[in-house]
Amino acid sequence: MDAATVAGYFKDKSILITGSTGFLGKIFVEKILRIQPDVKKIFLLVRAADTSSAEQRVLNEVIGNELFGPLRENYGSNFYSFMKEKISPLAGDIINENLGLESLEILKLSKEIDIIVNGAATTNFYERYDVSLASNVLGAKYVCKFAKKCANLKMFLHISTAFVSGEQEGLLLEKVFQIGETLKEGCHLDIAAELQLVESVKAELTHSTNGKSEQTEKITMKKLGLKRARQFGWPNTYVFTKAMGEMLVGHFGRELPVVIIRPSIVSSIYHDPLPGWIEGTRTIDSIISAYAKQTIPHFIGAGHVILDVTATTQDQSKEACVLNFDPKSIDWEYYLYNSHIPGVMKYAHKK
């Protein structure tokens, strides 16, 4: 399979994307439109009050972004008409049954959609437990249930995280999480019970404070998420709820063409279309920014320590090189000094 075949796969396909206003979502939308302008339609589910608000949000946060600069230059005065032809914003939310869409919308979409990419999530490590459960767990369930209504579905891609494996050491093979599975021996996870626990704790708080202390509820929910995560063997609320999301995708998506991908650290763009492009500061970027400001003049590290090694085959196909899917092709020193760090200072640091 070569690059032309990969791009050709998206020709005349309709794609539903959740999380398109996020970092990965924007990159994916731009990439599809650039490598396959004959994609039939890209539906973007965004949180908004109505269709008009959804359109405005996509205009401001997605296609109006500097990431789309090369496409804007390529299409010139036809850029916005091309975007309007290919992109269809939907006002909804994955935390609701039927994604918050009307019955007629669901019926229409179920006949059109070929591919679903579920990238919507809250990635805050220490998010409120109720918020994380709604987005990362119930959201995965509801998108899965919608996918089962799509008669022409060819792929359901769910974006998870490599850190659902927790803090285990050694060789970690990819395997699907089963319902109830935990990282702590002798424990069983009941997702329904976790949802009920959240509701009971919130009800108790409302009763004890007469519903007047939002800050107390926020702190309690954050502490509860961390406590439950560690009880079952995960280090934080984010990876715990993403693991639960995988369980529900595996459970409700048994009859679907499901692919779960688990990125590790998400960093700036390596090369295409804007080298070093990034939104916000991520992981080590806070240290880079602090070092640039000299608020951290130096930091200590052990050069011999292996942080992470990526599960890749020796025989890489042509598409991996052309579309940059092969991490072994990356010159990490060049990338860090010439793309990533300048990108952090140019795109993230200025904000």
Rank of each mutant, 00 (worst) to 15 (best):
T5E: 11
T5P: 00
T5F: 08
T5L: 06
V6K: 01
V6S: 02
V6Y: 14
V6L: 12
V6C: 11
A7T: 02
A7E: 09
G8M: 14
G8N: 15
G8T: 13
G8I: 12
Y9C: 02
F10G: 01
F10N: 02
K11C: 12
K11D: 12
D12A: 06
D12M: 04
D12I: 02
D12Y: 06
K13W: 01
K13M: 02
K13S: 02
K13I: 01
K13E: 00
K13V: 01
S14W: 00
S14L: 00
S14F: 01
S14A: 11
I15L: 11
I15R: 05
I15K: 05
L16N: 10
L16K: 10
L16D: 12
L16C: 11
I17S: 08
I17T: 09
T18P: 06
T18C: 08
T18N: 06
G19C: 13
G19W: 14
G19H: 13
G19K: 11
S20Q: 06
S20T: 08
S20V: 09
T21F: 14
T21V: 14
T21Q: 12
T21A: 13
G22N: 15
G22R: 15
G22L: 15
G22D: 15
G22P: 15
G22C: 15
G22A: 15
F23G: 05
L24H: 07
L24M: 14
L24G: 08
G25A: 03
G25V: 04
G25R: 03
G25Y: 05
G25I: 04
K26H: 11
K26S: 10
K26P: 11
K26R: 15
K26N: 10
K26I: 13
I27D: 02
I27W: 07
I27K: 04
I27G: 04
I27C: 04
I27H: 05
F28K: 00
F28D: 00
F28N: 01
F28R: 01
V29C: 08
V29Q: 01
V29E: 00
V29N: 00
E30N: 04
E30V: 05
E30F: 05
K31I: 03
K31Y: 07
K31Q: 10
I32V: 15
I32M: 13
I32Y: 04
L33E: 10
L33C: 11
L33T: 11
R34V: 07
R34I: 05
R34D: 09
R34Y: 10
R34S: 12
R34C: 07
R34L: 09
I35R: 00
I35F: 14
I35G: 00
I35H: 00
I35C: 03
I35D: 00
Q36G: 09
Q36V: 14
Q36N: 15
P37D: 08
P37R: 07
P37L: 10
P37T: 09
D38R: 14
D38G: 06
D38K: 14
V39H: 08
V39C: 15
V39N: 05
V39G: 04
K40S: 07
K40C: 02
K40I: 00
K41Y: 03
K41H: 07
K41W: 04
I42G: 09
I42Q: 11
I42H: 12
I42E: 10
I42P: 12
I42A: 12
F43Y: 13
F43R: 01
F43L: 06
F43Q: 02
F43P: 02
F43D: 02
F43V: 02
F43A: 03
